[in-house]
Amino acid sequence: MLDGLISDFTQCFVKNGRWEYLWNGLGVTLEVALAAIFLGLALGFLVAVVRATHDRYGRFRLLDLVAKVYLTVIRGTPMVVQLLITYYIILRSVDSKVLIAIIAFGLNSGAYQAEIIRAGIVSIDPGQMEAARALGLSYWRSMVRIILPQAVRNILPALGNEFIVLMKDTSIVGYIALIDLAKGGDIIRSQTYSVYLPYLTVAAVYLILVMTFTGLLGRLERYLRNTGADPVHNDS
């Protein structure tokens, strides 16, 4: 039994340096996920502010329409299909599959993050914007210095959840033949005809990634709470 496990392990990870499929794949997974998160954040903030400003003050009518179409299309179609369309149609001339994946996942995550951030903005007492404006701050400065910092604290758990979903969703990049962690495990399976070790190892690595990330997020939330600036339990 033990002998079988050891030989299976050797076959899957040691022989021909197969561990590199997982190691390099992990690198691709992290690269795509992290870059897409930041692209999504940038897009999300932009779309959220446009939507929230339109809804409260009636400005940006055209931009708001563009944002709504974007949200509807992205949230209304499957991620895999979006990835394939980006790869085969929109960015056909781009060579880097990593870059294509980053853009596809960033565009996708941006839509979900936008709605989370918008909910955060709307949740802030209008009195905060009024107080900032009454002091002479412009609308944008009030948004950046007063509203968004509070909104982000309120939505940190939801945003963290979206990051976790995005990280796991990147496991479909095999569809465009990009070798990430999941695809790396799949390649090992196809070479060794061993199913248990490659897939279970891949699953374990994703689990560790998510748990690490969740832990970091929890610490960030606790840190923000301990600075005394927790807007959730506060009515000033």
Binding site: D125, Q128, A134, Q150, A229, P231, S236
Partner: peptide
């Protein structure tokens, strides 16, 4: 607005600062 002060019923202090 920067030359007129305003004090609100609900204070509206910035809780994160």
């Amino acid at each position: 607005r920067s030359e007129m002060g305003m004090v609100f019923q609900h204070f509206n202090l910035f809780p994160h600062l």
